[in-house]
Simulated assay, not measured.
Amino acid sequence: MREVTAFAPATVANVSCGFDILGFAIDSLGDKVKVKLTEGSALKVVEIQGDEGKLPFESEKNTCSVAIQAMLDQMDLHVGMEISLYKGLPLGSGMGSSAASAAAALVAANEVLGKPFSKEDLVPFAMEAERIACGAAHADNVAPSILGGFVLIRGYDPLDVIKLPVPDGLHCTLLHPHLELKTSDSRSVLKQQISLKDATMQSGNIAGLIAGLYKSDFPLIGRSLKDVIAEPSRALLIPGFYELREAIKNVGALGSGISGSGPTIFILSSNESIATKAGEVSRKVFDEIGLGVDVYVSKVNVKGAFIL
C-alpha cells in the first residue's frame, strides 16, 4: 500500500510512584497520522490539523518526521513520504501528545514499507521524536502508545521495555483542567536529592503497584498509588488537586495522580461506574474553584497504535 493512516492513543506517564518508568494507554483519545509514499527521498509534512497552528512543518522539528527518519536511517533506506497529522490531543496536556503523533507516524510508515519492524522495535525511533519534543529521549509515553496496556521501562542502557498485565475492569478517568503547564516548569520544581526514607517508600509503592496489576488486586493498586518524590512539588501547580483527591475517595476510586508533568490528572477505578462517578465529583471540585475541565472515562487501552 502506498498510503496508510494509523491511530495512536493518549497515555498516562509516571502513574504516581512510577516516575519516568511506568505508563499506560487510554482508549479513544489520540492522534491520527497519514503517510503516503512519494517519489524522491524527502520526508515532507504536508498537513497538520487540530494544533491551532503551533506545530512545525519542518521535517527536522516535527515529531512525526523525526521518528520516521530515525527508522529510515536504521534501514539505510532513502524513500520519499508525505505526512499528514491530525491532532486529537491538546498540546502540553500531560496526555502524551507528542508521543501519540510519533507512534502513529511510525506505525503508518512501517505498514507502507511492508512491516520491516515489530511494534517493540519501533519504540527507540519514537524516543528520538521525544528528544526533539521535550529534550529527553524517554519512553514512558511512546512505549504504551505503541504497545498498549501498562508498560514498565526497566532501563535504557540497553532499553528494556516490559508489558504488564491489565486487570479486568480497570478504568481510568482523565481530567484535563483548562490551564497551561509547561514541562520545563514541572521539571524545575522537582527536588534534585531525595532522602533514603522517601526512596524506600517509593520503591515499595512501585513494587506494590506492579504486584497489584499481576494479581488483579485492586485494593493493593489503590494503596500503592502514592508518589512521595515528584507529586508533592508538582501538585502545588495544579489548583484543586488535593480537594479532588479527597472527593474521589467517597465514590470508591482506587486513587489518583498527575499524568506526566501535568496539568492532566488521572484517576484509576475498579469499574466504569466508579470511574464515571469519580469524573462527576471531580468536575464539581473544579467548578467550585472556577476552573474549566475536560473529563474522559476510558478503559486501559491494551491494543496500542493500529492501522485504520
Rank of each mutant, 00 (worst) to 15 (best):
K115A: 15
G88M: 11
P116C: 07
I83F: 06
L113W: 09
E120S: 08
Y86D: 12
S93D: 02
L85P: 04
S98R: 06
V123P: 01
K115P: 11
A104I: 13
F125S: 10
K119A: 10
L91H: 02
D121R: 12
K119L: 14
L113M: 08
S84K: 07
F117H: 08
L113R: 01
A102M: 07
L85I: 15
L89V: 01
S93T: 06
A102N: 14
L85A: 15
K87T: 12
G94I: 02
A104C: 06
A105F: 07
S97V: 09
L106T: 09
N110C: 14
V112E: 08
G96F: 03
G114C: 11
P116M: 05
P124S: 11
P124V: 11
V112I: 15
D121Q: 14
F125P: 03
L89C: 04
S97E: 07
V123G: 07
G96N: 05
A126V: 13
V107G: 01
S84T: 10
L85G: 00
S93I: 02
D121N: 13
A109F: 06
D121A: 14
K87N: 15
G114P: 06
E111K: 15
E111D: 12
S98H: 02
A103E: 01
L106Q: 01
A102Y: 13
A104S: 14
L89E: 05
K115E: 15
F125M: 14
A108N: 10
E120Q: 11
A126C: 03
A104M: 08
E120R: 07
I83Y: 05
P90Q: 03
G94C: 03
K119G: 10
L89P: 00
L106V: 04
K115N: 15
S118D: 14
P124C: 06
G94F: 01
A109H: 05
G88W: 10
V123C: 05
S101V: 13
S118K: 14
A105S: 13
I83H: 03
G88K: 10
K119F: 13
S101F: 12
A103N: 02
I83W: 13
K87V: 13
L122S: 08
V112D: 04
S97W: 03
Y86V: 12
M95T: 06
K115R: 15
A109P: 04
L113S: 11
V112H: 02
P116R: 08
A104R: 11
G96Q: 04
N110Y: 15
P90V: 10
G114W: 06
E111V: 10
A108Q: 10
M95H: 00
A99Q: 08
S101M: 06
V107R: 00
A100N: 05
E111F: 00
V123N: 02
L113H: 06
V107Y: 05
A102V: 07
E120H: 14
S93L: 00
A99S: 10
L91Q: 10
S97G: 14
L85W: 04
S84H: 12
G114S: 08
A105L: 04
V107C: 07
K115Y: 15
A99T: 03
G92K: 00
S118L: 14
L106M: 05
D121L: 05
A105K: 03
A105P: 03
A126R: 05
F117V: 09
A100L: 05
A105V: 05
